[in-house]
Computed example of a mutant assay.
Amino acid sequence: MSQAETKQLIAAYYDAFNRGEPEAMEAMLHDDFEHHVNEGGIRRGKDGFAAFNRHMSETYRENLTDMVIFANEDGSSAAAEFVVNGTYLKTDPGLPEARGQSYRLPAGTFFAIRDGKIARVTTYYNLADWIRQVS
């Protein structure tokens, strides 16, 4: 993939996120997909990511803004920086109680691209900042 095609893929992935269409996001994933969780483990495969998306949509309502997408020259690696604008809907185990709190959080994601699909997603955000905002 070219640099421009990779940037278009990442933009489409996040457009699907903002539209609340996890199936469209999942369609862009490579069969050997890995999701590296912020301050957590690694989910392997599309099924694990689909389960994660279901949990997230029940627990949080989020919209991403101020998106900037970067890609290397051969399109095999990309990154995105953005702001997460969210509402905490349902208490996530081990985290503060949800009461419909709003939050605004800078975040970034790194991607590996293979065979025209997203092979790895690694997202980072400041969990302590998020906890402070919803506590």
Rank of each mutant, 00 (worst) to 15 (best):
Thr59Phe: 01
Phe70Leu: 15
Arg43Gly: 02
Thr59Asn: 09
Ser57Phe: 06
Val68Asp: 12
Thr59Arg: 11
Arg54Gln: 11
His35Asp: 04
Asn38His: 03
Lys46Ser: 09
Ser76Val: 09
Lys46Asn: 07
Asp32His: 08
His36Val: 14
Thr65Arg: 08
Ser57Asn: 06
Gly41Asn: 12
Gly75Leu: 00
Gly48Gln: 09
Gly48Phe: 00
Thr59Tyr: 05
Arg43Thr: 02
Asn72Glu: 06
Ile42Phe: 01
Asp66Glu: 14
His36Ile: 14
Leu29Arg: 03
Glu26Met: 13
Asn38Lys: 08
Val37Lys: 12
Glu34Arg: 12
Glu34Gln: 12
Asp66Ser: 03
His30Lys: 10
Ala27Lys: 11
Ile69Arg: 06
Glu39Pro: 00
Phe70Lys: 00
Thr59Ile: 05
Glu23Gly: 06
Gly40Arg: 03
Phe33Cys: 08
Gly45Cys: 04
Tyr60Ile: 08
Val68Arg: 15
Phe70Gln: 11
Glu26Leu: 10
Phe49Arg: 09
Val68Pro: 00
Ile42Gly: 01
Glu58Asp: 12
Thr59Gly: 04
Glu62Leu: 07
Arg44Trp: 05
Met28Thr: 05
His35Thr: 02
Gly41Phe: 08
Ala24Gly: 03
Gly48Pro: 02
Asp47Thr: 13
Met28Val: 13
Glu23Arg: 09
His55Arg: 11
Asn53Ile: 00
Asp32Ser: 11
Met25Val: 06
Phe52Trp: 04
Glu62Ala: 03
Gly40Asn: 13
Leu29Ala: 09
Leu29Glu: 01
Tyr60His: 03
Gly75Pro: 07
His35Ser: 09
Met67Gln: 14
Asp66Trp: 03
Glu58Ile: 09
Ala24His: 01
Tyr60Lys: 05
Val68Met: 12
Ser57Trp: 03
Glu23Ala: 11
Arg54Asp: 10
Asn53His: 03
Asp31Glu: 15
Phe49Ala: 05
Ala27Asn: 12
His55Glu: 04
Leu64Lys: 06
Ala50Gly: 10
Val37Cys: 13
Arg44Gln: 15
Arg61Leu: 05
His36Ala: 11
Asp31Tyr: 11
Phe33Ser: 01
Phe49Thr: 00
Phe52Gln: 10
Val68Gln: 08
Asn38Thr: 14
Asn63Lys: 11
Met28Pro: 09
Arg44Thr: 15
Asp66Met: 02
Leu64Gly: 03
Val68Glu: 14
Asp66Pro: 06
Arg54Asn: 08
Gly48Trp: 01
Ala50Met: 13
Gly45Arg: 00
Met56Val: 14
Asp47Arg: 15
Thr65Ile: 04
Phe70Gly: 12
His35Gly: 05
Phe70Pro: 00
His30Gly: 02
Ala50Lys: 15
Gly48Glu: 14
Glu39Cys: 13
Ala24Ser: 13
Ser76Leu: 01
Glu58Pro: 00
Met67Thr: 05
Ala71His: 00
Asn72Ile: 01
Asp47Lys: 14
Ser57Asp: 01
Glu23Pro: 00
Arg44Asp: 04
Gly45Ala: 05
Glu34Asn: 15
Glu26Asn: 15
Glu23Ser: 11
Glu23Lys: 12
